[in-house]
């Protein structure tokens, strides 16, 4: 199946913005998302193909407007909910609780 992830040969994406002396992670949260990948695999919640497929299932506009590690976050939330490891409502309450804590 093709999809928005199948970018090879597509026009209109503009110039390549390479960054000199780029850090491995651009924010502490990216570092944590990267680490969670190992939990996804070691916990048996998904394999690499399921993980990639969860990214490929993103809505095209969301896929193109979010960063790489946001794709990972999306895949992790999607798969943990689909596999029943966490519940959508638990996650939403956690978002709300943490959001209040940050005010």
């Amino acid at each position: 199946m093709n999809g928005i992830h199948d970018l090879g040969g597509m026009h209109g994406h503009g110039p390549i913005n390479s960054e000199a002396n780029e850090p491995i992670f651009h924010a502490p949260w990216e570092r944590r998302v990267f680490g969670l990948l190992f939990t996804m695999f070691s916990g048996g919640y998904c394999n690499v193909d399921e993980f990639r497929h969860a990214i490929e299932r993103m809505a095209p506009a969301e896929y193109l407007s979010t960063s790489y590690y946001e794709h990972w976050l999306h895949a992790m939330e999607t798969l943990l909910i689909e596999k029943g490891v966490i519940q959508q409502r638990e996650l939403a309450s956690k978002w709300a609780a943490l959001g209040k804590g940050q005010m």
């Binding site: 924010a27 502490p28 949260w29 944590r32 998302v33 969670l36 939990t39 960063s67 590690y69 946001e70 976050l73 992790m76 939330e77 943990l80 490891v85 966490i86 638990e90 996650l91 956690k94 978002w95 943490l98 959001g99 940050q102």
Partner: peptide, 13 residues
């Protein structure tokens, strides 16, 4: 805020 989302996942797990 993706930082909040990661924190939420880590905290739940």
């Amino acid at each position: 805020d993706p930082a909040l989302r990661v924190k939420a996942l880590e905290s739940l797990l």
